[in-house]
Design a protein around this nucleic acid. Structure first.
Length: 420
DNA sequence: TCTGGGGTCCTAGGACCC
DNA sequence: TCTGGGGTCCTAGGACCC
C-alpha cells in the first residue's frame, strides 16, 4: 500500500509556523511578482477567494477581513519542505518526493492498522515541523491521490484509506472527473461532453476509446484507478531534462538593453543550477513575450533555440549564445513582460565529445572560474560576481515582493526573535 | 498600476540521412 | 497506371502537474 502525504495550504502554513499570532486567522501567499493568490489558510479560503485570481482583485476583500498577506518566500518553503521530507523518511522504507509539499511513501509491512499509521504520520510531522498534513492510502498512486483528496473533503482527521473494492468505488463515485490526477480542464470538458461526470464514470469507459482519445497516458490512468499499479515510486529522483529560468518583470519593458540585462541575469542563475546538478547543456532556448493580459497592447511571442558548439556550463559562454539567440527574436516597439532561457540536452561532464579546436585545458580553466564564482555568490549573496552583461539596473526590472517574510531557517541574521 | 515559475510527457510533421 | 523503407533530429503544439 502507498500513501500520498501532502501539507495543507503549504505556503500559508509555513508562514504561520513562525507567526503564532496568525494561527487560526486568514493568511494568503502570493505568487512571484505578487501576482496572484496561490495559497490560503482555511480561514482565508472560507472568505471565498479563488486561487489564481490577480492579487489586486482580491486584496480589498482580504484587507477588509484583516487577512495577512505574504509574498512567496521560496528559501523558507524549500527548507521547510526538506524538514517534512526528512521526517517522512523516518516513517517509511521508501519515499518519493513528488513536489515541494507532497510525497508518496510505502506503508511499512508492520503497519497492520493503516488508518492508525496515517494518524501517526500526521502527528509526527506536526510535532517535528509544526505543519499539518493530509494522508491518502491506497494500492496505486492515482488512487492514493484520490484518497488524499477525499481526506481533505472529509474535514475530519485528514486521513482516508482505500483498502477494499467498496472503499474504492465509494471514493471514485464521489469524485468529480476534473479532480482526477492527470485530468486537466481541457480533457475534463471533453469528458463531460460525453456524459462522464465522476471518476467512477471515467473508469467505465472502454479502453479503446480512452487509448484513442487520451493517448497511453489516459489509459495508464484508467488502470491505476481500477487498482492496477502502472508506476512505481521513484526513490532516486530522475535527472532533469531541462533547466531554465523565466520570470516576469516588475513592469513591462520596451528598452532592449534592460531586457538583455535581465536575460543575462537569468542565464547566470540557470548556469548555477546546472553546475549544482553537475550537468552540461548541449542546447539552449531563449524566449520572449509581451503581456497577454493586455489585449489592447500589440502582442508578440517568440522563441528560438541553438545547439552549443560543445556542451558547457560556463556562464559567460552560455550568455554569449543566449544574447545571440535573443538578437534573432527581439523586435522593437513592443512592451515586453517576460524573457526566459531553457537549457536542454543535458549531459554529465565526463561524457562530453571534445572539440578539436577548443582543447580541454581551456575548459578546465572555465570550471575553476565558475567554482570560484559560485562560492563567492553563495557566501556574499546572489550575483555578487556576475558578467557585465547582467548590468547594474536590476531595480528597473526585478520582480515585486512587497510582503516578504524573513528567511527564518536559512539566514542567521533573519532568525526569529523571541522577547520575554 | 497590478495576472507565476519550473517542469514532464505525447503527438505530428518536415527535413534530411542511407 | 505504377514511384521504398527505415531511421534521426528538430520544431511546434497540446496537455498536464505542483
Amino acid at each position: 500500500m502507498l500513501a500520498l502525504v501532502d501539507v495543507n495550504s503549504f505556503y500559508a502554513s509555513c508562514e504561520q509556523v513562525f507567526r503564532p499570532d496568525l494561527r487560526g486567522k486568514p493568511v494568503v501567499v502570493l505568487s512571484n511578482n505578487d501576482g496572484c493568490v496561490i495559497a490560503a489558510s482555511p480561514e482565508a479560503k472560507a472568505l471565498g477567494l479563488p486561487m489564481w485570481r490577480p492579487a489586486f482583485e482580491s486584496l480589498p476583500l482580504l484587507k477588509q477581513h484583516g487577512a495577512a498577506v505574504f509574498s512567496s518566500n521560496y528559501p523558507l518553503y524549500g527548507d521547510m519542505s526538506r524538514r517534512v521530507m526528512e521526517t517522512l523518511a523516518t516513517l517509511t522504507p521508501a519515499l518519493e518526493v513528488y513536489s515541494i509539499d507532497e510525497a508518496f511513501l510505502h506503508m511499512p509491512d508492520t503497519a497492520s492498522d493503516l488508518y492508525a499509521y496515517g494518524r501517526h504520520i500526521r502527528e509526527r510531522v506536526r510535532q517535528w515541523t509544526g505543519l499539518p498534513v493530509g494522508v491518502g492510502v491506497a494500492p496505486t498512486k492515482a488512487l492514493a491521490k484520490a484518497a488524499n483528496r477525499a481526506a481533505k473533503r472529509g474535514g475530519g482527521d485528514q486521513i482516508c484509506v482505500i483498502a477494499d473494492e467498496r472503499a474504492r468505488i465509494d471514493c471514485l463515485r464521489n469524485m468529480d472527473v476534473a479532480d482526477i490526477w492527470g485530468i486537466g480542464k481541457r480533457i475534463a470538458a471533453r469528458l463531460r461532453h460525453r456524459g462522464v461526470h465522476t471518476a467512477w464514470d471515467f473508469t467505465q469507459l472502454s479502453d479503446d476509446w480512452v487509448r484513442r482519445e487520451l493517448t497511453v497516458t489516459g489509459l495508464r490512468l484508467k488502470r491505476e484507478l481500477e487498482g492496477a499499479p502502472q508506476a512505481k515510486l521513484e526513490i532516486d529522483p530522475p535527472a532533469k531534462k531541462m533547466i531554465g529560468t523565466a520570470k516576469s518583470f516588475g513592469t513591462n519593458l520596451s528598452d532592449k538593453t534592460l531586457i538583455r540585462e535581465a536575460l543575462a541575469w537569468y542565464v547566470a542563475e540557470t548556469g548555477e543550477k546546472l553546475r549544482r546538478q553537475n550537468r552540461l547543456a548541449g542546447y539552449l532556448t531563449v524566449f520572449l513575450e509581451t503581456n497577454r493580459f493586455r489585449p489592447d497592447d500589440p502582442q508578440y511571442v517568440n522563441q528560438t533555440g541553438l545547439r552549443l558548439p560543445v556542451p558547457t556550463s560556463d556562464t559567460p559562454e552560455l550568455s554569449r549564445h543566449a544574447l545571440l539567440a535573443f538578437e534573432r527574436i527581439f523586435r522593437p516597439g513592443y512592451r515586453y513582460k517576460k524573457v526566459g532561457i531553457w537549457l536542454s540536452d543535458l549531459t554529465v561532464p565526463r561524457a562530453v565529445q571534445q572539440n578539436l579546436f577548443d582543447p580541454p585545458a581551456h575548459r578546465d580553466r572555465s570550471g575553476t572560474l565558475m567554482r570560484v564564482v559560485d562560492r563567492v555568490n553563495r557566501r556574499y549573496g546572489k550575483a555578487t560576481l556576475r558578467t557585465a552583461s547582467a548590468g547594474f539596473r536590476r531595480e528597473q526590472w526585478k520582480l515585486r515582493q512587497e510582503h516578504l517574510s524573513p528567511r527564518y531557517t536559512t539566514r542567521i541574521d533573519e532568525l526569529l526573535e523571541v522577547r520575554s
